[in-house]
Design a protein around this nucleic acid. Structure first.
Lengths: 219, 219
DNA sequence: GTCGTCCCTGAACAGATGTTTAGTGTACTG
DNA sequence: CAGTACACTAAACATCTGTTCAGGGACGAC
């Protein structure tokens, strides 16, 4: 209808194409890929269904574009690992979920899309997880070397467990909110959740059978 | 084609209706509700599409029936909480995932369907999670009272965390297998995973900054 | 026998699906 | 100016969707 074309020369990414991508991101995150139609995406973006296919070739092409875009957004979180010790000393940002919830605007569809990405089984999500795992493993390694974390026989599983337990908060957010009575990904809920997780990671949760003999065995 | 009708009088649940339910369970678990058509379910069950609707009214009615069936299967795991101490003393069966993987036959679609149930956001999954959370909370309470677990300020979050970290293994099984190089839900992988988790729950993972001053600050 | 009941099917329904085609209008290039 | 390039759309495409309809065939009741 109106002349929106001049936008193209203004900014390289504020075009209708980006609008379609964003609309698809939101709808995919909310309902899942197969439950969203091209027409619904087009309506949400305010364009015709044909334009969606014109820009992305097919619905699957759009999905891949959205996957790449979302994965790129999340990769940004891996850029700044800060100082090694900060992860522990400043009680915050110890977890990926915490970091994500803090940096992203409250209504962002990205956390929900991350859930889909990890669960829908597409290669983009698997690769993202794999990269995060590598970072997580390297971090645990450095924390142990720096004396902030206890050494373990199974570094890989330890890193995987901590990453998994972290992401699980995001993935199981809905049933958790329902069961707990509060949203553990909200700012308040998140600090409460993180406090208890830190407690477990510092003190453990179970009582070791006979502490004295165990300590003597350590020396 | 053949006369399968006499089956009806033999067993109350080995009918074509149950076959449809099982076929739907497998397909739903594998691809998700919205990605499976009635015709695909009918073909997998070896019946006509019309029969699916005849027995379950609608596709959504079938989904609800499958949900109820799956939830009932999983509720069985809550029946035998055994002795309180057993959960800790015998290193096994400390986790729900462990228990599920052990009891169910290797090729069972139930774990995958549980994933869908928890993630698809339908009320059946939320109610299941809520019940498991209650059981988990009660268990932690009893473990603390019995001296097997350390007391905590936030019992609810502790129970929720342990349940979540547990289920996350099932939910994130695919990317975990990809990143770790082995399937943590397989018998071998599971024991390796459980060993490290137990280590964390007993000894913690982080080094507490300065134990003595911290204790004096507590008083 | 005839009736009713229930399991089951083939064919068709209207609507939604992803996608293609032909074409319009605007903008930059020569 | 004509010409190309690109964003964009309306309409139609074949196919798939969930669902309905009319009926077939086997069973027990009367």
């Amino acid at each position: 209808m109106f002349s929106v074309l001049n936008m193209r020369s203004v900014s390289g990414d504020l075009t209708a194409k980006a609008g379609i991508r964003n609309a698809a991101l939101g709808l995919f995150a909310e309902r899942g890929h197969s439950a969203v139609s091209v027409r619904q995406i087009a309506e949400a973006a305010g364009v015709s269904p044909a334009l969606v296919l014109h820009h992305f070739g097919s619905k699957d092409g759009l999905r891949e574009a959205v996957d790449r875009y979302a994965a790129a957004q999340f990769d940004a979180f891996l850029q700044a690992p800060e100082e090694v010790g900060d992860v522990l000393t400043s009680g915050s940002n110890a977890s990926m979920a915490e970091l994500i919830a803090k940096v992203l605007p409250p209504g962002s569809p990205l956390p929900a899309y991350l859930r889909r990405l990890l669960l829908e089984g597409d290669p983009a999500g698997r690769e993202l997880f794999r990269r995060w795992y590598e970072v997580s493993r390297a971090l645990v390694e450095r924390l142990i070397a720096a004396g902030f974390a206890k050494p373990t026989e199974d570094l890989q599983v330890r890193a995987a467990f901590m990453l998994t337990a972290d992401l699980a908060l995001l993935v199981l957010r809905e049933p958790l909110t329902d069961a707990l009575g509060f949203d553990p990904v909200s700012p308040d809920g998140l600090s409460r959740w993180a406090a208890e997780v830190t407690r477990i990671y510092r003190e453990g949760a179970f009582v070791v059978p006979d502490e004295t003999t165990d300590r003597s065995a350590d020396r």
